[in-house]
């Protein structure tokens, strides 16, 4: 199981700002290790974000997203205390779901 995500969600006026840091190597499949062997691609492909039980963001990512991806989103109509659930799935089928509450 991968390391937990760091999720920060905070209300700014009537908009909730959500920042997510995912711990993932995001190997491109182009890099070689010290012995000169290609490191196989291993990267997050799908990301979903739910706020207050509603799916708000559905993302697909490729190999050119940086290692330990950071994404930031804004969601209208959310309120402090709403639960933010973030989920990712990578190309090897590994997945991780983490949640946080929106701070006031």
């Amino acid at each position: 199981m991968a390391d937990p995500m760091k999720i920060r969600a905070q209300m700014k006026g009537d908009v909730a700002e959500v920042r997510v840091l995912m711990a993932h190597a995001m190997e491109t499949g182009q890099r070689k290790d010290n012995a000169g062997n290609l490191v196989p691609a291993h990267f997050i492909q799908q990301v979903t974000v739910e706020v207050g039980g509603k799916l708000v963001i559905q993302g697909q990512t490729g190999t050119s997203v940086s290692r330990n991806p950071v994404f930031a989103f804004k969601v209208k109509g959310a309120k402090a205390g709403d639960k933010v659930v973030v989920n990712w799935v990578d190309n090897k089928g590994d997945k991780r779901t983490d949640e946080a509450a929106i701070a006031a």
Partner: peptide, 14 residues
């Protein structure tokens, strides 16, 4: 984007 998500995105790319 759906259900009130603002069409804004910030990412870090290689």
């Amino acid at each position: 984007f759906a259900n009130g998500a603002v069409p804004e995105i910030s990412v870090r790319l290689k």
